[in-house]
Structures are given as C-alpha cells and as structure tokens.
Design a protein around this nucleic acid. Structure first.
Length: 660
DNA sequence: GTTCTAGAAC
DNA sequence: GTTCTAGAAC
C-alpha cells in the first residue's frame, strides 16, 4: 500500500466461542479450501491428539508465526485475558482478527451432547454446565484489545459468510478493519439459567474481592442458599414422570412462596432428561420465578467445579438403609463425599421411611465440601413403584403421590432449617468479628434460632396492628400501643385478644425483658375486660395467656372464659391449645421473663394429646363427647389454676380491681 | 387461623 | 350408614 515490499502479511484469527459453537468446523472449512497456508492451533488436540496446555498452544502458535503462516487459535477464548497471551506473540506484520461464534447456548449444548467423541471429550450433562459456566464469564472482544478486525456471527448464515470470506482471502488480500456483524445483547440465551446464575456470579465476585484484601474473609451474610436435588423416585423407583413433575412443581412453588432467600435447582445428568424437560415446561406454564427455581443439566456432585453453580446443600435420592451403592445419584454422592458421609449419616439416622428426609452435615474433610462447597447432604426417600425394590406400592398412585409430596416437603423443610442454621452461624460470626476484634468472646455453639415463615393467612392480626382503621370490625379498644378485639372465631362465650402493636414482637418466643412494660399493659387491658365481662355474667371464669407457638403473627394475649361453650371450638388442636401447658398464663410469662429474660415455651406435640376435661381431668374419646361433658362438669378447677391469679372469677374479683 | 373432604372409626 | 378426624388447601 505504501509501496513497501511486503506481500504476505500473515493473519492470526482468534476464534471466540463456547464448546459446540463450531470453532473447529470453521477452521477446517477454511483450511481445506483456502489458498493461504493456515495452521490450526487447537488446544483440545495439541498433545498428540489429546488435550494439551495453554503453554503448548502458545508455543505452537509462535512457531507457526515464525514460519510466516496464518493461524487459527481454536480454543474458547471467551475472556479477554485468555486472548491477550496469544495476541502478544504477534509482531507488527501480523494482523490480529477475532471471529466470534456467538450462537445460542442451546445450540452449542445440544451439539456438544450429540458429539460424544468430540476432541475435548465433553459430553452429556457436563456439556450444558460447562457451556453455561463459560458464557457466564464471557467478555466480547473489543478493538482496543488490539484486534484490527472483529467479525460477530450470531447464526449459521453469519458463520457461513465468514467462512467464505476467509476462504477467499488470497495471500496478498487484506480484510478491512473494524467490527462487523451483530454484537449480541448479553442475555440473548437461556435467560432462566442466566438469571439464576447472576446472583451466584455476583456473590462469587464479592467473595473474590474479599479474599483479595482479607486473608480469611469467607463470610458474605447475604448469599442465598441453594438446594440442588435430583428428581425423587423417577429413576430406579419408576414413578410416573408426568405425575412426578406436577408434584415437583407444586411442592417447589409452595415452598418458594413460603420461604424467601433460598433457591432450588432440579438437577439431572442428561440434557435429554425427560423429567427435566417436563418440569421445565410446567415451570414456565406456572410462571415460577426463574431466578429462584431452575432445571439444571449436570452432575450433582460437581455442580460448582464443572457447572459453576454453587449449591450449599444437595439432596440425595437415598435408599431406606441409607447405605452407599445401588447406582445412580445415591452411589455418586456417597462416592464423591467419601467415607465421612457414611459415618456422619450413621450418626444421624439408621434408616429412612418413604416420604421422609434427613439432613446430614457434611464434615469439612469431605471432598464434596472442599471442592464443591457442599455443607449438607439431605437424604430423601421417595415412594417405590418398582416391584424389584423394597416397599413396592403396587401401582397405588394415590399413596405414591402422597408419599412423593411428603418426600419433597420434608426435603424442603430440612433445607430451610439447615440453610437458616448456616446463615445464623455466619451472621453471628460476622457480628462477633465486628464487635470484638481483639477479645476472645466467641460462643461458637450458640443455640440456633430459625426464623419463622408466616403464611399469608397468619398475617391478619399483624395487619390489624399496623393499620387498625382498615380492619375496624370487631375492635373493642384501640390505643397507641395495643388493640383489644373479639376473636373472630371465639372458642368460648367470651374470647377476646389483646394485641400488641409493637413491631418485631411476633410471638411469645420474641418476648424479652425490654417487652415487660408491653406485657404488663397487655395484661392489665385484659384484666379490665375480664372485670367488665364478670360484671355482666358473674358465673364465668377467665384465663389470660399466650399460645406457646401461635398460628398468627403479632403477639396477642388470649382472654378466654373457661366454659368453652362455642361452635367454633371444633377440634383437638383448639381444645388442647387452651387447656394444656401449651397455653402459657400471662402471669407466669411475666414472672419468667422478669426472672430469666424469656418465657418457657412448650412443645406443639401437646396439641395432639388426648382430650381431657380442664376441670376434672377425665378423658374423652372425641370432641362431641368432650363438649357434652364440659357442658355439665362442675368440678372445681385444678389447684394449679387457683394459685397466683391464673384463674379470674367473680370471687377474686375484688383482688383484681386492686391489681388493675 | 378456617374450610373442605377422604376415609377411619364406630 | 353416620360420625368424626386429620390432612391438604387456602
């Protein structure tokens, strides 16, 4: 051009694209028909037909350049840094080009899967994971990296055109400089996987940053725990795929509705997995949030290392003996986790019933912990429809579906508890680090508290407390700090609730010393109403108290007459929640908090107890019988209730007036 | 928390 | 056949 004798300017073409994007095909097509001498540097085959190292590739490229050849760099080259080393080899007489094979990830994945004897030996489930992981980090090449020309290809036609262009490029021809073709918008492909990935990518970056300036900064309090789980019962246990996929979707949807800040990934090994595609279709139909639920193709024991998907908890489709082996996911997980998992499992449980799950903390010695970051394995046992296996259900899908539902819900429940547990631990670590940098004041094994997830129906009182004007019906008294209202379904002739309006005081468990003034004013508001009721009907007796584990959010004191004469009292749970130790008398609660800082809570199992008369303690077979008994039982109340003003009646009314 | 209902208990 | 409970759905 400027008169200098330099007929053979060489070209280095750096191909950019994930596995399956057609890089090798591109090179072959050009090389076989081109008039220029080309060398293809392919890392996948550079080592005598086998995969080699980057150093080998660099050496081969340098040699070819010295011989004045044109070269294709046939490796993924998705990141700037990976490309830079090859570009450095070039001297001034070499043009550097990029050809970006930016085809839909789906296309690349299915090509990888179909080509089992591909040089890079990527197949099946790994393919999707690898492609996804790579695309997550891709950086489109830019002219200021040093390229004189960049050609973007988004589809087969673009690729064909580019091949033609390079094939026809004669020894003395020069392609014009600049960017050509359509640059892809970042998220053109597999949006569901990408949205799901985004968060973990962000976390990972944060993690990297922290590790950069802090030697052991391994805590990021706001990462979302992810549970990876295989489809239960559909493989060896031969459960109907269509039914199973419905159950997976419903269970996941229900779970995600109830629990925030967690994610689920259904994992299967093969891209052709029928259950995965069924679930995927149904998830779209049902509009499941794709940033919180995905189907993922990959090996559940290598999700992070091979797929870039960080899952702190993985589920195992276990057998009832909780033993290794048997093939499939169970064998794979036990193998990958090492013997420590067997030992840890034995410590937790001997066997497992169909429909249940058991979470096992994974010892940090386990390779699965170290390599993949898995902290827990949850063993799940689903229903069996395979006559060759134990507990065969003889095609009884009514039972089968129920058990499968149970299996998923126990799995998800276990996940919440271990996920929360981990999060709390981390939070505490962070807090104690922040507070006490020098002092050695760490209570490592503190009690783990799991936050409660309230269903939408459990928020009625909470909403009333926030905005009483909106929910006026049934309200007897409104003040700045509390509300008195009739229970919507009174379990006795007189049954009112004294509702705290404090934010964050959701239940008895939350009540601490700082809440004592509130508890006292709730109590005296209650007593005030009792006195009013006693004036109207002196035959009544009252108790004031809290449910150990309430169904409704927002601390509320029950003020209830002891006749229990109400059509709304219908079942065992109703009865036992007011007549067993599950009901905590307000006076005792206040004493306990004053003395110990918190109130004693009793187990929900009390609600399942046999039905006994609250006066004479006689047992009754069912609710109707019990009700007809209590309608006429005149026995005096148990001595316990007669102490400490637990029971309020017209006879101790005088004392009450003084107290209130 | 309630409602609804299958199926257990009688 | 009827009564009652327990569990799912809301």
């Amino acid at each position: 051009m400027d008169g200098e004798e330099e007929p053979n300017r060489s070209v280095m073409v750096i191909l950019v694209g994930p596995p399956g994007s057609g890089k090798s095909t591109f090179c072959e097509a050009v090389i076989t028909a081109s008039k220029r001498p080309w060398v293809r540097v392919c890392q996948d085959t550079i080592n005598n037909g086998k995969a080699g190292t980057k150093v080998q590739s660099l050496k081969a490229a340098a040699d070819a350049l010295n011989e004045g050849k044109n070269i294709f760099i046939d490796r993924c080259n998705l990141e700037k840094e990976q490309r830079a080393d090859f570009m450095k080899l070039c001297r001034s007489h070499t043009d550097i080009h990029a050809v970006v094979l930016d085809l839909p990830a789906k296309v690349c994945i299915s090509r990888c899967v179909n080509r089992t004897r591909h040089e890079g030996n990527l197949q099946g489930g790994q393919a999707a994971a690898v492609v996804n992981k790579m695309l997550q980090n891709k950086e489109a090449p830019n002219l200021n990296e040093g390229f004189s020309r960049i050609t973007f290809c988004q589809n087969d036609k673009d690729v064909k055109d580019a091949i033609k262009m390079y094939t026809e490029l004669g020894p003395s021809d020069k392609l014009s400089s600049g960017e050509f073709g359509q640059k892809s918008k970042k998220e053109s492909v597999q949006p569901s996987i990408m949205t799901f990935f985004k968060k973990s990518a962000r976390e990972e970056n944060k993690q990297k940053e922290k590790e950069g300036n802090n030697s052991s900064g391994n805590v990021s309090g706001n990462e979302f725990p992810t549970l990876a789980f295989p489809s239960i019962s559909t493989s060896d246990f031969q459960f109907d795929l269509d039914k199973a996929s419905d159950i997976i979707i419903e269970s996941a949807q229900d779970f995600l509705k109830r629990v925030d800040n967690v994610r689920l990934a259904l994992v299967d090994l093969s891209y052709k997995s029928r259950i995965l595609s069924l679930v995927r279709e149904k998830a779209v139909k049902k509009g499941i949030d794709s940033s919180r639920f995905i189907t993922f193709v990959g090996d559940i024991t290598q999700l992070y290392s091979k797929g870039g998907l960080r899952c702190t908890v993985i589920a195992n489709a276990a057998n009832w003996r909780l033993r290794p082996g048997g093939g499939g996911v169970n064998a794979a997980i036990f193998k990958a986790a090492g013997e420590v998992l067997e030992v840890a499992t034995k410590e937790r449980a001997g066997t497992l019933n169909p429909g249940s799950a058991v979470a096992v903390p994974l010892p940090s010695a386990s390779p699965l912990y170290q390599r993949e970051g898995v902290t827990h394995v949850i063993h799940v046992l689903g229903p069996n429809m395979n006559p060759q296996r134990p507990n065969y259900l003889e095609n009884d899908y009514t039972k089968g579906c129920k058990i499968l539902r149970d299996a998923y819900s126990s799995l998800f429940e276990s996940f919440t508890s271990v996920a929360c547990l981990e999060r709390n631990k981390k939070q505490k670590l962070v807090e104690s680090k922040e507070k006490t940098s020098g002092e050695s004041k760490n209570n490592e094994e503190q009690e783990e508290v799991k936050p409660r997830n309230w269903g939408s129906w459990a928020l009625a009182l909470h909403n009333t407390a926030k905005d009483p004007e909106k929910h006026k019906d049934g309200l007897l008294e409104i003040s700045d700090n509390l509300i008195v209202l009739n229970d919507l379904y009174p379990k006795a002739k007189k049954h009112v609730l004294v509702l705290s309006r404090l934010n964050g005081l959701d239940c008895l468990e939350d009540a601490k010393r700082e809440h004592l003034p509130m508890l006292r004013s709730m109590h005296s508001a209650g007593v005030k109403w009792v006195n009013k009721f006693l004036r109207e009907d002196p035959s009544l007796n009252f108790r004031l108290g809290y449910h150990s584990v309430p169904s409704m959010r927002q601390l509320h004191l029950h003020v209830i007459s002891q006749d229990f004469d109400s059509p709304s009292l219908k079942n065992k749970k109703h009865w036992n929640s007011f007549t067993t130790a599950f009901f905590r008398d307000s006076v005792d609660v206040m004493d306990e908090i004053e003395e110990h800082g918190s109130a004693k809570l009793t187990d929900e199992k009390l609600l399942e107890m046999e039905l006994r008369c609250h006066r004479c303690k006689s047992a009754h077979p069912n609710i109707p019988k019990l009700k007809s008994h209590i309608a006429k039982c005149r026995a005096s109340f148990p001595p316990h209730l007669l102490q400490n003003n637990r029971l309020l009646s017209a006879s101790n009314n005088g004392i009450l007036e003084q107290i209130s």
